[in-house]
């Protein structure tokens, strides 16, 4: 019964979201959901590192930014067409793969907190580069660019982002459930033991970092396409913090968690900013995020999805226990 309910729920949500543009004509809600889909991919990519492999990165924004800037620059320099758009997304993916590979090689041999600091430094480098290469990036102000007509339609782009999220989710799920995915979890659990089983831990960390970097670049590209504008904020620490909050609140080590965390954070963000009319304190929505974060960590230390999963296993265990207690 329980299991059935848990498979029906996602299917129902998917159907609801697919028919959403038909049922609702609120433009702002459509944009909000589009953003949630895009951030969900970013959060899932971060969760590959944090939740599956146990790597803490403070520089995940650099991949998001690489994706965003490659689309921005590509569309700015080349003629506006579907082909050039796809090509610039592809360039972003390749660049992110190369950068994540080198960052991985250079730093994944380090102990956790040193790695975190080094990623912070690397992403700082990208902020500086984006600011200084004014001729290409127009500095901190950023620049607008055109995308094909089809992508400018909000409903179309809603569907594109939705399908994008589902596809990335399915691919990442496949990845996390593959033999390599299992080794990543083993590394999170006990790095030394994983080594002594004969796995070369650094190789696996690099794989995780490249896959996460590529997924993050894709979400960055999508983000730039919705805004049709890019500036240096895409490289900042705020973006990384957002991914961190989304994964922790949603639940680390579960891909669903990233999606739920993204939905919650983006919705809360929207809600709090709209409350700014009521009282100016709501403009400082980040304060409320802090509170939300504290509450979540206290009540659901394993995140929302993690806590639900735990309830499930407890209930299952309780049911089993009862059966074993019976005379037969």
């Amino acid at each position: 019964m329980l299991r059935l309910r848990w498979t029906i729920l996602p299917v129902a949500v998917v159907l609801l979201l697919l028919s959403f543009p038909e049922l609702n004509d609120s433009r702002s809600l459509l944009i909000l959901l589009t953003k949630i889909f895009i951030y969900a991919v970013f959060a899932m990519s971060y969760d590959l590192l944090l939740g599956y492999t146990g790597i803490v990165s403070f520089g995940h924004a650099m991949f998001f930014g690489i994706g965003a800037y490659s689309v921005g620059i590509g569309m700015d320099v080349w003629k506006n067409s579907l082909g050039t758009l796809l090509l610039s997304v592809l360039i972003g993916v390749v660049a992110a793969a190369v950068v994540s590979y080198f960052v991985g090689i250079l730093s994944l041999r380090l102990k956790s907190h040193f790695y975190a600091m080094l990623t912070l430094a690397f992403s700082g480098l990208f902020v500086v580069a984006a600011e200084k290469m004014r001729s290409v990036t127009n500095g901190a102000d950023g620049f607008p660019f055109a995308v094909p007509e089809f992508f400018m339609d909000r409903t179309n782009f809603y569907y594109i982002s939705f399908v994008f999220m589902i596809v990335v989710f399915l691919l990442l799920r496949r990845f996390t459930r593959s033999p390599v995915g299992k080794v990543l979890q083993a590394i999170r659990e006990n790095e030394q033991r994983t080594q002594s089983l004969g796995y070369e831990v650094v190789h696996y960390k690099i794989i995780a970092s490249v896959v996460a970097g590529v997924a993050a670049a894709l979400s960055g590209s999508m983000y730039a396409i919705t805004l049709r504008f890019v500036n240096t904020t895409v490289f900042t620490m705020d973006i990384t913090i957002m991914a961190l909050l989304m994964t922790i609140i949603g639940g680390v080590g579960t891909l669903y968690g990233g999606i739920i965390g993204a939905a919650l954070i983006e919705y809360a963000h929207e809600l709090l900013t709209s409350l700014a009319k009521v009282h100016p304190i709501f403009e400082r929505w980040i304060i409320f995020f802090g509170l939300l974060y504290i509450i979540v960590v206290m009540i659901f230390p394993m995140g929302i999805v993690g806590t639900i999963k735990r309830w499930q296993t407890h209930r299952k265990a309780a049911a089993l226990g009862k059966r074993e207690g019976l005379p037969w």
Partner: peptide, 19 residues
Amino acid sequence: VRLAVQSRSGVRYNFFSAL
């Protein structure tokens, strides 16, 4: 234990096959 079996049988970098 399965992780140990996996290591020994040399399935090291397969990242796309279902278990």
